[in-house]
């Protein structure tokens, strides 16, 4: 806040600027209380041993981090997290990218219908989705199991099976996330000048080349944005089906860093561990984003 008062004097001659700061104050207060301070406090908590109830917090230095990082569970969970990320990216980044391209550029009919229908689940509670899919994908009595039964196929008992549980939870999360990402990517591809696409077609450029060499680079700013929110936000969305369906089980097989931080804090009351895991999660996100930018930076084409 001190920087703000510092600038105040400079603009004193112009009452307008005081007004400008006034406009920002509500946002700044809310963010200070519910985002910035909590962030710092989490960093602080990660150096203490505490159970959220006891009046005493014991300073333990880096011990929380050491414990978390020497626990084999943690590596499993990090592994799970990466598996989630890869699956979510494939389903909610790669597939909608291709879909958006085909619907906008290749096909001429039903565009509006596809857009509306695919966007619909984005409006619906993921808890609803979780419960519904638990029923629909029930390996014994669910409708899908019955149809598979006619074909002589079996649905694995996915809530209890390693690997499968992550795949199915990713699919359920994607049910909600897919449409939103699709709309963003569609908008970006739709914004590319038709002349560019038409001239490529006049040159008889094959579709896959059109996609990879023209559409992809020209929509890459949005593409990167979708890539990032898929990692950061979808992973948080996964929390809901995990909490509703498996609570991280069986034996942490469906847990990820987000759920695990919650679990440590509010199920087993180890705030220090939880805080350390959150900070590690953020660090991992930052590294991922950094790598992403390093790798793709040169290829970015900023729309407009």
């Amino acid at each position: 806040m001190s920087t703000l008062t510092g600038i105040w004097g400079k603009f004193n001659k112009n009452r307008g600027n005081a007004f400008g700061y006034g406009l920002l104050i509500p946002s700044i207060i809310v963010f200070a209380i519910f985002t910035f301070w909590p962030f710092l406090y989490t960093v602080y908590l990660s150096f203490f041993d505490w159970n959220m109830i006891s009046p005493e917090k014991e300073f333990v230095g880096l011990r929380n981090y050491m414990e978390v990082l020497s626990d084999s569970k943690t590596y499993r969970i990090i592994g799970n997290t990466f598996l989630y990320i890869v699956l979510l990216l494939a389903i909610n980044c790669v597939v909608p990218y291709i879909f958006a391209f085909v619907i906008d550029v290749v096909l001429k009919r039903f565009n509006g219908f596809y857009k509306s229908a695919m966007f619909l689940p984005a409006f619906i509670s993921l808890v609803v989705g979780s419960i519904l899919f638990t029923w629909i994908l029930n390996p014994v009595s669910g409708p899908l199991a019955i149809i598979f039964g006619w074909l002589g196929l079996e649905i694995p008992n996915w809530t209890k099976t390693q690997g499968w549980v992550i795949l199915v939870l990713s699919l359920i999360t994607s049910w909600k996330v897919f449409g939103y990402n699709f709309i963003l990517l569609y908008a970006s591809i739709n914004g590319i000048s038709r002349e560019v696409i038409e001239s490529a077609r006049l040159d008889n450029v094959p579709l896959w080349r059109l996609f990879l060499q023209i559409i992809l680079p020209m929509s890459s700013a949005t593409g990167i944005y979708v890539f990032i929110i898929t990692i950061v936000q979808s992973l948080q969305y996964v929390f809901t089906p995990v909490k509703v369906i498996t609570q991280g089980g069986p034996d942490y097989a469906s847990s990820n860093l987000i759920y695990h931080a919650y679990h440590e804090a509010f199920v087993v009351y180890r705030t220090g561990h939880s805080a350390a895991i959150s900070i590690i999660t953020m660090a991992l996100f930052l590294i991922l984003l950094f790598l992403e930018f390093k790798l793709v930076e040169r290829g970015i084409y900023y729309e407009n």
Binding site: F34, F39, T42, M52, V232, I258, S278, M282
Partner: peptide
């Protein structure tokens, strides 16, 4: 926007 909610979860609960 890019901060996971777990990072602010405990302090917000305490607040």
């Amino acid at each position: 926007i890019f901060i996971p909610f777990t990072v602010t979860m405990i302090p917000n609960y305490l607040i």
